[in-house]
Each structure stands twice: as structure tokens, then as C-alpha cells.
Design a protein around this nucleic acid. Structure first.
Lengths: 114, 114
DNA sequence: TCAACATATTGACAGACGTCGATGGCCCTG
DNA sequence: CAGGGCCATCGACGTCTGTCAATATGTTGA
């Protein structure tokens, strides 16, 4: 059953979701269900270069450094962002496909492959 | 930079979200951040008639009637579904625009008119 | 008016979550 | 190798959330 690659994004509007599919989607949305994380996403996505140093996220977010680190971890584990260490700093960028999958599950037509 | 009236759905991928915008969006996604509610949505949306009697949701969801009622209330308050009383029963249907707004906030281009 | 049924609300409880201060691990620069 | 800056982890705390049993509210039909 591991071969069914197209499990990427069952739509909420189609056939009834199984408990398992629902749980997976719910995890994705849970990552978005916090103002701090949404603002982090928008801060990261809003950079012209497409990525930001984590150090530039603490102050605009108005939360402590450990809290920001915690939220970045949640976003990372949800696959919505990825971080890359470069020397002292860690640079974050969004993962467009992950957002697209969630978007598609909200009834959007299947996303064309990039 | 407060855009005009089309505050319907600021995108996570555009300008940094304000704490207020983020909080609003987060509430929407929080409503989707539970397997039971996602399955409720898919059960309601999956009906050919576009609506279902609440009594038909308890058994397929596999949770108690109060729990189902609770989740329906959350979905209602998030504007994702609406219920109409008809005699003894309450019929639920999804509110497509609400889902579309959330979808759009995930970077989808502005939704065309249906 | 009353009994029966569908739905909503209440109360209680365990577990998850957001937050912060303190601390630890890395990596760079003297 | 010592010091300092960046980032992650830990521990603790209060709050929020999902769940159910019990109960209340509301509607129908006798």
C-alpha cells in the first residue's frame, strides 16, 4: 500500500475522510492555528530573498527567543518551512508545496505539478 | 498600508500579517485543526443534496452525540457550516466562501467568481 | 398536556498547548 | 582556547481543548 503516491492531499469536499487522513490534515492545519506561527510564515515568505535569518524574527514577532524557536520547530515538523544552518545563523524559508497541499485539501482543484 | 475593504482574506504570503489579522486567520484554521471536524466537513460536503441531518453524523463519526454537537458548534462559529432547523431536525451545509477565504489566505491567487 | 425524540448545554477531567526563564550546544572571532 | 553571540532544549506554569455522562431545551404527535 506504500505505492499509492497520490495520497498527497485528499480534499475535504470529496469522499468522506478516513480517520487517518483527517488526522494527517488536522496536523497540518494545527500548525497554522496559531497567530505567532502565521506571522512567522508571513515574515519568512515576505522576504525578497525568500529566506530570513532566525535572528530577524524574534523582535518583529514580539515574543521571547525560546518561544520563536518553539514555533519554528512546529512549522518545520509540519513541513511548512525549512531551515539551513550557515555558520552562526539559521536561515528559514517556506516550503511552497506544503502550503499548496493544504490549500488543495480545502477544495482547490488539484495543483499542477511545478 | 491597510488595504481597502477587501480585508476578506489577507494572504500569509504577502505583507507581514498584523497580530490581529493573524489571530483571525488562526481561529479559522483552528476550526480545521481537528480530525473530527474535518470528517464532519467532508461528511456534510459529501452529500448529494448538499446538506445533512445532524442525526446522520453521529454514527459515522464514531463519537458521542454531545461531542458531535460541540464540534458542529465550533464549525458554525467559525462560519464554515450553517445549520437550519426543520422541525425536529437540524440540517447542516457547508459555507463554500468561508473555505475559499481560508484557501486564498494560503497563497492562492484571488478566487475567481463562481 | 404529556410522552418521545432530536439537539444543545453543562460539568468534569485528562491531555495538549503557548509562554517564558534558565540552561546547554555550536560556531565564530580574538 | 577562551569569550561571546545565536539557536535549541528543558522545566514549569496557566490556559485551552476534546471527550463523555447527565441534563436541559425544544419540537412533534397523540
Amino acid at each position: 500500500m506504500a505505492r499509492r503516491a497520490q495520497v498527497c492531499c485528499p480534499s475535504v469536499l470529496d469522499a468522506p475522510l478516513s480517520e487517518k487522513e483527517a488526522a494527517k490534515l488536522a496536523k497540518g492545519f494545527a500548525a497554522l492555528a496559531d497567530p505567532a506561527r502565521l506571522r512567522l510564515l508571513s515574515l519568512i515568505a515576505g522576504q525578497d530573498e525568500g529566506e530570513v535569518c532566525a535572528c530577524e524574527l524574534v523582535e518583529p514577532l514580539g515574543r521571547s527567543q525560546p518561544t520563536v524557536s518553539h514555533h519554528l520547530k512546529v512549522l518545520r515538523e509540519a513541513g511548512l518551512v525549512e531551515g539551513e544552518r550557515r555558520g552562526t545563523w539559521v536561515w528559514y524559508r517556506v516550503v511552497p508545496d506544503a502550503l499548496a497541499d493544504l490549500r488543495a485539501s480545502l477544495g482547490g482543484k488539484a495543483r499542477q505539478r511545478a
